[in-house]
Structure formats: structure tokens, C-alpha cells
Amino acid sequence: MTEAVPDSRIACHECDLLMQRPEIHGDQVVHCPRCGSRLISSHPNSAERSLALALAGLILLVPANLFPVLTLEVLGREQQQTIFSSAMALYQDGLALVALAVLLFAIMVPLLKLVLLAYVAGALHLQTPWPGLSLAMRSYQHLDQWGMLEVYLIAVLVSVVKLVDIATVHPGLGLYSLSALIAVTTLSSSQLDPDLFWHQIDDLNKSSLVQETFDE
């Protein structure tokens, strides 16, 4: 049985122009010759960088959610606020949809994004065709548009400005962890090379099919 030849073509996601895949060396950006949209943004060791950033983000998620983001002191009384407790406070105030949005886009979506990125990058780093790689990569790219940790951080900063006149506000470890988490997730998105990931996933899937055929 002859070995499958990897597809050397690439299609523009904006104008559907089909062209030969160019040779990429080091940090390079390839644009479509017809519409000018970015086709490839190459980063050396993209899988290893993405895996390291995903693991760092998963570690930072723990203190960002467990430790208080802010501590308010009013007339000698202290009240600590975490991301989860702020969502519960919104729910108790009758803002159920806003509370659900905070839970989804400040906790669940970032967690799922980092887990999917670690799964895909880990498989590519180990060159192992783990099940569901294509679905995991596709889901990550969809969820990458819905991470709103930056919006939550801006809301926290606005709250600090409004509360500083009536209470003493102390930033907590959760705020610093959240800021670091935002930096890590932003960096992971910028360092990800989608074209390389999809190309390697396709190669792994093809090699897995060939191996299964030989085993049969």
C-alpha cells in the first residue's frame, strides 16, 4: 500500500483562492495574493509554546478563582469578592442573565479553552493521534472569540474607581492572578499557529488511518 501524500495546497479563508502551500522558515507571515488576508502566521515551536502557556494558564486559573479579587473595608467591616461570589451577588440582585454571563465567560470558557489548547498542543508535541483532535481544535478556535476576561477586569477597575470614595479597596491575590491569566491567554492566542496545527493534525490522522489499515 502506498503512503498518502500530504496535501500541499492551501485555501484562503476569505476569498477561497486555492494555491500551493509556500515554504515557511522561522517567524513569517503569509498573505493571500488576491485579497491580502493573512493566511499563515508562523511561529517556531508553536506546539511547545502553546502547551507551556496552556499549562501556565490552568495553574493561574486556580488562584484567580479561589482568592479574592478585591477586599472592601467599610466602617471596619471587610467584604471579600471573588469572581464566583460576584456572580452570585448579581444573581441575588435579580440579574440572573448577567450572573450567568460572568460564570460562562469569566470562568467556564477560559477553563475550557485552556484544556482544549493543552489537549491539542500535547498531542502535537508527542506526535500522538489522540481521539477528537480535529473537534478539539475547531472548538478551541470557536471559543477563542468568546473569552472575556479582559471585560471582567475592566469592570473590576471601574468598580474600584466608583468605590474608592466610600470604602477602602484592597486588591487581592485573585486580581494579580487574573491579570497574569489575561496576559497568558492573550499570548497563547498570538503564539498559536492555526495553519501548522491543522496541517499536523491532518498528518497525524492520516498516519493513524494507515496504521489501522496495516493492523487489519
Rank of each mutant, 00 (worst) to 15 (best):
D7A: 14
S8P: 05
I10D: 11
I10S: 07
E14S: 13
C15D: 11
C15S: 09
Q20W: 15
R21S: 06
D27W: 10
R34I: 07
G36F: 10
G36N: 10
R38T: 14
I40H: 02
H43E: 02
S46Y: 15
A47R: 11
E48V: 11
R49N: 09
R49D: 00
L55V: 08
A56P: 00
L58A: 04
L58T: 03
A64P: 07
L66E: 07
F67H: 03
E73G: 00
R77P: 01
E78I: 03
T82V: 10
D93F: 11
V98Q: 12
V98M: 11
L104V: 08
I107E: 03
V109F: 08
V109P: 00
L114T: 06
A123E: 11
L126M: 13
W130Y: 15
G132R: 14
S134F: 13
S139K: 10
Q141W: 01
L143G: 02
W146S: 00
L149I: 05
Y152L: 13
Y152M: 03
I154A: 04
V160H: 00
V161N: 05
V161Y: 08
V164N: 02
A167S: 15
A167M: 04
H170K: 15
A180H: 05
A180S: 10
S190V: 06
L192N: 08
P194Y: 09
D195E: 13
H199F: 06
Q200G: 00
L204K: 04
K206G: 01
L209V: 06
